[in-house]
Simulated assay, not measured.
Amino acid sequence: MSGADLAAADIAAADIAVVGLGAWGASALWQLARRGLRVVGVERYGLANLNGSSSGESRMFRTACLEHPGLVPLARRSRELWQRLERETGTRLLEPTGAMLIGPEDGRIVDGALRAARAHGLDIEVLGQDALRRRSPAHDGLAPGHIAVVEPAGGLTLPERTIRAAVGAARAAGARVLTGTRVTAVEFTGSGVAVHTAAGRVLRAGQAVVTAGPWLGRLVPDLPLEVVRMPTTWFTPAVPDERFTLGRLPVFMRELDGGDVIWGHGTLPGRTELKLGLEDGGRHFRIVDPETLDRSVPPADWAVLSRHLAWAVPGVGPAPSRATANIYARTPDGQFVIGRPRGNPRLVVAGGCSSHGFKHATGVGEVVADLVQGKEPAFPLGFTDPDRFE
């Protein structure tokens, strides 16, 4: 249903309005609806669109959360909820391939993964260079002292499928969904919130959940968010090679000498493309305005990555066969913002994914639902407090 098709009488009442139905918003909608709340989800574009942060056909899943050890319980819970969503919808959403975190033992990637694994007793395997080459021969040019942390529970999540499945499950539980509806403001009233749309309609609800991804900072301006433009690239080897299949090249992050990090995975069954990319690290990508984003991807966008791949993953070719320009919201400390800004009883925000948030989508949805209902989340997430920057 589009916003234009929604009758004025139908827009009048809801317990919760969820603004933005990317992965986090769709998961929150599902969790709120299955708890019996009257919930309306509002999406500016269509479901599983290419405009925000929740696209790209595949995303890495891991519980060895090098970004912050406190994220490990959230990732574990997210895996359980992904499996629940699979059961509820009969849709395959998570492919268990294992995950590799590669680099110097004292580097950010490997050291962070090891610290998270040790703190939470994760099942991991550490491979030296010879064992890594045997396990995943596509990786070349390994510097002395570089190792791999292998997490058997890691794998791939499928973002577009996940969003559609979560929204479908939410609808089955009674949620209403408005697509093609741009929200221009969230106003706090004496009785709750008024969600204003570009078409001049107003959605009234008791509380608002704002999960608008790169547009979160526009709707909740006090949050210190910047929007990062990230090229996403796929490569097709000139000659088919078993080294580049998903079984031999599972999802990975690899820190190179000099600090750059490449990431990706091998070809999915029935496909010919590898997905390979470059992590930002604050050095490569541009800060942009999501309203005026240039979606073209010129050679300059993948030049650094191509130079690295020539020796680190040789044989994939010098230029991508396909490329898109995606965007995500980033916080100053690289952690999420999840909670009630300034204790506002009518607002919950969840955003600032900082390019590592998709793996937590289903768990974040549950945390958001707990916050809406005044419950403490099952694990401490104080490091995501929206007020921590004040």
Rank of each mutant, 00 (worst) to 15 (best):
R164A: 06
E95Q: 09
T91G: 04
L293N: 02
G363F: 00
L178N: 05
V348K: 00
N344C: 12
R115T: 04
A194H: 14
G282R: 12
I287L: 15
A33L: 13
P345Y: 15
A138K: 01
T331S: 13
P240V: 04
R35S: 11
I102G: 03
V18H: 08
L278Y: 05
Q207G: 06
R164S: 08
Q207I: 06
N51L: 15
A17V: 13
F244D: 00
T157W: 01
S58C: 14
P250G: 07
G46L: 15
A17K: 08
A378M: 12
A185H: 08
L29C: 06
W82I: 07
L249W: 02
A75K: 06
Q373E: 15
P224V: 11
Q31G: 11
R201I: 14
G154R: 13
P214F: 05
V220R: 04
S306G: 14
S296R: 15
G145T: 07
V227A: 03
A303W: 11
L216P: 03
L50W: 02
E57V: 09
S321A: 11
G334K: 04
V19Q: 04
G264Y: 01
V193K: 05
R84A: 12
H120T: 06
W30C: 12
A208C: 07
L371D: 00
L156H: 11
P231N: 10
R286I: 01
D222W: 13
I147M: 03
D111L: 09
T236W: 01
V149R: 00
N49A: 15
P96M: 01
L305H: 02
I262W: 01
R218D: 05
A212T: 02
L94K: 03
L81M: 09
G266V: 09
D106C: 10
A172N: 08
V72I: 10
L93K: 04
E125H: 08
G22Y: 09
M60D: 03
A319Y: 10
A9Q: 13
L93G: 02
D111W: 11
G180W: 07
P320V: 02
G3M: 08
F188P: 03
Q83I: 13
A350W: 04
H139I: 12
L276S: 06
V364E: 00
G25R: 06
I327A: 09
G282A: 06
V261Y: 03
E376I: 01
